[in-house]
Structure formats: C-alpha cells, structure tokens
Design a binder for these strands. Structure first.
Length: 478
DNA sequence: GCCGAAATAAACATTC
DNA sequence: AGAATGTTTATTTCGG
C-alpha cells in the first residue's frame, strides 16, 4: 500500500493499544485509609476469594463480586485517578509524555476518565481484541456474529460511529487472526445469515481477561509512577484491574449505578480498586510495603494456602506481574496452550508464578501447575514454545501480537500444512512437538525448568499432604 | 536503533 | 452481482 495512503488515514498512528500505556497519575491522598480498613478488607477479600473457589471460571461473576468489594474499598480514602488526555482529546497521554499537573481537570475526577461525553470523540483505550471480548462476553450466549460485534462496539463506544470504517476491518482482522476468538461451528448455528458466530476460545479466555486487566485506566499500572516518588498506596496485589463494562453482571446487578456512570456506557474499570480480583497473584518481593499491603498480602496468603489445599478446585487466573510476559494476553503464551487441549488442562488448572530472583527485576512467569508441568521436560517445552526474539518479521507476515503470538504458532503450523485453513493448521501445530532448536532458548529452558520444575514439583508434593504443603511453602519462600 | 504489540490498509476468497 | 464476511499480507506507529 502506498505510504501516502497511510498518511491520509485519520486514525493512523493512533492505535488504541499504544494509548494503553498507563496513562495514570497517582492520587495524593491514597494513604488515607486506615489500618483497620485494610484489615477488614483483608478479611472480606479472603471470604470473597474463598467463595470464588466454588465458582467456575466460565463466569466472571467472581470477578465482579470482588470488584464490588474493592470498589467500596476504593471509596474509603483512596483517591481516584484519571487517564490523561491528549490536547486533541483523542488519546490518552502516556505518562512519559506528560507531567502531572495539579490543574488537570481530570485529576481526581472519578468519572471523567472515559465517560459518555469523552467517549464520543475519544478513542477507546481498549484494544480491538478487548472490545470484541467484551462484546462477546456481553452476549447471552457468549457468541456473536460480526455484525453484532460491530453493533455492540458502536453502542458502547460512540467514537466508532464517526470513526473511519476501517475499524470494522480491524475487528474482522482481529477475529480472524486472534486465536482467542473462534468461530462457532456453523452446523450448530444455522440461520444466522451470512457469516458465523464468534465466541471466545475458553483456552485463551483468561488471556483476554488479563488483557482487560491492563486497562490503561488503572491508576496503579506499573508505568504510572515510580515507587520512589509515590508513597505506597495500594498493595502490589492491586496492580491489575479488569474493567467493568456496562454489560457485566455486576454492573447490571447494581443497576448501572455501581460506578455511577450512565447505563450503557463503558465503565472505566480503572476506578475500581479490584486488584485482588486475581487472588492467586503471588506478590513479588518488592520494596517495603505499607501495612495495607501487608494486610492484603496476608489475605492472599490465606487464599493461596487454602487454594493449594484443594488444588483441584477452582483457581482464578493468575496474572503475572511481569510486565513483559504479561504485556498482552497473546504474548503470555497461554499456559493451557502449553499443555494443549489434549492434555486436558483447562481454565481450572492451577497456575503458579515462578519468581525468578533478580537483582534488577523479578520476572515471574506463568507456569501451569499440574501433573503435566512438573517435569523438566514440560518446563523446557514451555520455554521452547516461547516466540523467539528477532523472528518477528523475518519469520513471516505478522500483524502484531495478537497476531504476533499467533504468528509464531501459525508459522509453525504453516510448516505442517500450507493447504489447511489457518486455524486448523494451528490446531495441528499444537499437536506437533515444538521444533525449536534455538540453543539460547534451550539454555533459558534449562534455567526456567529448574525454577519451574522445582516449584511445580514442590507444589505437587504439597498437594498431597496439607502438612507437607506448608513446609514446602516455607522452604520455597526461604 | 531494535523489538514487540497493535492498528491499519488492502487484496483476495468465500458465503449469502 | 454485490455486499458481508473471513483470511492473509504488508505496513505503520509508538512505547519500552
């Protein structure tokens, strides 16, 4: 395509994803909540998480309930923050390109981050994948034809009503390229007219949830403020915040008043301190934390202990705190993918965060914790399936990460059969052992398997005996 | 400057 | 036939 055409594109260069870098500013009254509040919250969270154990991941209800709880927490002395806006009102500013200004009218306004008025002319902060995910999740049957996905996006994001029509192409592009989405077999869904129904691949569902957790409006997105300049406000465990959207059960349950925005408008989930929605996040060893943090961590610790006591039970999706690994749901190779459908691993499988000790930065990685990943082979396989650096363009056409991670899969799949449809090739690729011969990756695999294998084995053992579990955990932490 | 992630554009195929 | 849908490739942008 001629570059000139690109230049003419009104939306070129203003991708939503790029606006998704944490455009937050931390509030200055975030330390107001009392110790007692933190303790209470801790207890409540524990109860909430305990309840979550009994729920299935097929529903986000556990998420929303926790959101509710933490929303109340957010009103107990923590100040809301808002995304920054470009002077043109189109895109959130990245923190790097802006300096906090006390005069910013958005600062502290809990409802201005992405409200109806702004939404009409501001590009949504959600990637297309997230938009599609939300649309499908909002559907009664969790499946939608493309046309209805358009409709949902239009309904909830007025921006697109006046946006160039290319966004529809992008939606279709995402649906096709993103392995998180899959077409419903048309045999079972006839009479919907042209096209197919699209649904979320359960295998990648938590990846999408993780993507949503990266809503740019989350005030404590890692890129927001450096720890040195920001007093400890929220616990580390509050690092990711799934947004609420109008169709979410919680939002509905509260009659749309939960977050006090007009019904039908996408809610800025960042205003909700619901970090602990993902209770199996294992807090990393970080710099000194406040008592609130400690309280939450204590709560999480309890949850973790209980969760490991019953490993077969539900365990909410883990969110790695590693910014790189977790940067997108697609790059974070789905742990379940690791074990592939044939392994029987599903969303209910336990996942552990492997904490790689580093003087510079901890790099937890998601490793499925089940019988399939307790061996060095499994860990090595996990590593070997990671996309190799430098393969991006040379390995073939790619459209980014959604596309990019599937890119790797696809390219591998392509070697299997160029004649099969893309997604069938993917499926075939999953069954085929990885062919990575990259020595560097093997070395990395060795390193990681040591960490992952040791930990996974430990956990496996501890799953058998509650007593052993506690001891192993202690040993692990030491 | 490189890389990753995502958006965007477009060509082409398929389906209705 | 034409529009909608689906797939694929190429390119661009921007933050890290």
């Amino acid at each position: 395509m001629p570059p000139s055409k690109k230049a003419q594109s009104p939306s070129s260069g203003a991708s939503a994803s790029q606006g998704m870098s944490p455009p937050y500013r931390q509030g200055d009254a975030a330390t107001a909540a009392s110790e007692a509040e933190a303790a209470d919250l801790s207890l409540s969270l524990s109860a909430s998480f305990s309840k979550a154990e009994d729920e299935e991941l097929t529903s986000l209800s556990w998420l929303h309930e926790s959101t509710d709880l933490l929303n109340s927490f957010s009103h107990s002395g923590l100040r809301s923050v808002s995304p920054l806006q470009d002077p043109d009102g189109q895109h959130p500013r990245s923190p790097s390109s802006s300096s906090p200004s006390p005069d910013d009218p958005l600062l502290g306004d809990p409802h201005s981050a992405y409200d109806l008025a702004a939404g009409a002319n501001r590009k949504p902060p959600y990637s297309f994948s997230c938009l599609i995910f939300m649309a499908i999740e909002d559907a009664p049957n969790k499946r939608l034809p493309v046309k209805d996905i358009y409709g949902w996006i239009l309904e909830h994001f007025p921006y697109f009503a006046s946006a160039p029509t290319g966004w529809k192409n992008s939606v279709r592009h995402n649906l096709s390229l993103n392995k998180c989405f899959k077409k419903v077999d048309k045999d079972r869904s006839q009479s919907i007219g042209k096209g197919s129904l699209w649904s979320i691949d359960p295998e990648y569902r938590h990846n999408l949830i993780q993507a949503l957790k990266k809503t740019p409006y989350h005030p404590y997105s890692p890129g927001l403020a450096t720890p040195s300049t920001s007093p400890p406000t929220l616990p580390q465990t509050f690092h990711h915040s799934p947004p609420l959207w109008s169709g979410s059960p919680l939002f509905r349950k509260n009659g749309g008043v939960l977050l006090q925005v007009p019904r039908g408008v996408i809610q800025n989930g960042a205003r909700v301190r619901n970090q602990a929605l993902f209770p199996v996040i294992r807090p990393l060893p970080v710099s000194p934390v406040g008592s609130r943090t400690s309280a939450i961590r204590s709560s999480l610790g309890d949850y973790l202990s209980r969760g490991q006591d019953s490993p077969s039970r539900y365990s909410p999706p883990l969110c790695s705190e590693d910014l790189q690994d977790d940067h997108t749901y697609s790059t974070a190779k789905s742990p379940s993918r690791l074990c592939s459908p044939s392994s029987g691993l599903d969303d209910d499988d336990d996942i552990i965060a492997v904490e790689i000790q580093s003087d510079v930065k901890p790099e937890p990685r998601e490793i499925p914790l089940d019988s399939h990943i307790t061996s060095a082979t499994a860990a090595a396989n996990y590593i070997s399936q990671q996309p190799l650096r430098g393969q991006r363009r040379s390995s073939g056409p790619g459209a980014g990460t959604l596309a990019g991670s599937s890119l790797w899969t696809k390219n591998r799949a392509r070697g299997i059969s160029d004649t099969l449809p893309l997604k069938k090739r993917r499926a075939a690729a999953v069954e085929k052992p990885p062919e990575s011969d990259d020595e560097e990756m093997k070395e990395a695999a060795g390193s990681l398997l040591h960490l992952a294998g040791v930990r996974a084995c430990l956990n496996n053992i501890t799953n058998r005996t509650a007593k052993g579990q506690k001891e192993q955990k202690d040993a692990l932490r030491n």
